[in-house]
Simulated scan of single mutants.
Amino acid sequence: MVVKPDWLRVKAPQVERVGSVKEILRDLSLNTVCEEASCPNIGECFAVGTATFLIMGPACTRACPYCDIDFEKKPQALDPNEPFQLAEAVRRLKLNHVVITSVNRDDLSDEGSSQFVRCIEEVRKVSPNTTIELLIPDLCGNWDALKIILDAQPDVLNHNTETIPRLYKRVRPQGDYQRSLELLKRAREIAPWVYTKSGIMVGLGETDTEVKEVIQSLRDVDCDILTIGQYLQPSQKHLGVKDFVPPEQFDAWQEFGESIGLLQVVSSPLTRSSYHAEQVKTLMQLYPRHKS
């Protein structure tokens, strides 16, 4: 058994603030990936009034063995009130930056793209200055659905690569590494003004060389932002941790990614794809883009 090191200890959250955010989420019948995926940063994020909203769930149509989101329940019909409730949560929490993600909905003909669009529209109505980041699934390679999402003009389009190609069959059995890269490449071509982002987790048996190859591949499709974090096993039924990567290795990957042209690499043991996502606002000021 691999023992969790000291650098993965998480500070206890401020109970009052966490409870306040949870109360709003329950009142509006909203799900968050913070809760559904057992994120280790839930206390810190809730304590400062942020959350990553999980739409079209909580049931997922895929069964990735690293993920704690429920795949045993049958997916339900989309809730037409969800976009309004999400926008109301953004208003109540006074969010400057919001991250909206979803479960995989391979059962829907448009892969759920229309629900993403409605959420963007409703958030912009009530909080026009809030920047919007979407963390989307691979859409089963439905590029028409991708265009529908990008036509709604999110500020950031995030799609996680998750792991190295060699581990895909074990880690993401229903995913495809090249399809994920193609999604990011097409996003840049369809909407060059949108910041593209991806994320990977480590500690599943990858080598330093393999991680660098993924970082280079993301740069080759002109990805802007990359997050790298330590995989943590949600339960005994999930994939086990092969090793706990030391902080200095995360620093080395950050240095490498930024040296080859990525605009930002957020890399640390506790980094997750939407951890401190609001920092993109600074990036947008340094590297402004405008729709032509």
Rank of each mutant, 00 (worst) to 15 (best):
V3D: 14
L8T: 04
R9T: 14
P13W: 03
E16L: 12
K22N: 10
L25A: 00
L30K: 07
C34F: 03
E35F: 07
E36N: 03
A37M: 02
N41M: 08
C45A: 04
C45Y: 02
G49L: 07
F53D: 07
G57N: 01
C60T: 01
Y66K: 11
I69V: 15
F71A: 11
Q76E: 15
F84C: 03
F84K: 13
A89R: 00
R92W: 09
L93R: 01
L95G: 03
V98W: 03
V99H: 02
S102Q: 12
S102K: 11
R105F: 02
D107I: 08
S109Q: 14
G112S: 13
E121N: 08
E122H: 12
K125Y: 06
V126D: 01
S127T: 08
P128Y: 10
N129M: 13
P137I: 05
L139Y: 04
G141N: 06
N142M: 11
L146K: 01
L150A: 10
D151E: 15
Q153T: 06
P154T: 05
L157I: 14
T161V: 14
L167K: 04
D176K: 12
R179P: 00
S180L: 03
A187R: 05
I190M: 14
V194Y: 14
V194C: 15
G205L: 13
T207E: 12
T207Y: 11
T209I: 13
Q230G: 06
K237P: 00
H238S: 11
F244R: 09
D251N: 12
E258Y: 02
G261N: 07
S274N: 00
A277Y: 00
Q279E: 09
Y287R: 15
R289H: 11
H290M: 01
K291Q: 11
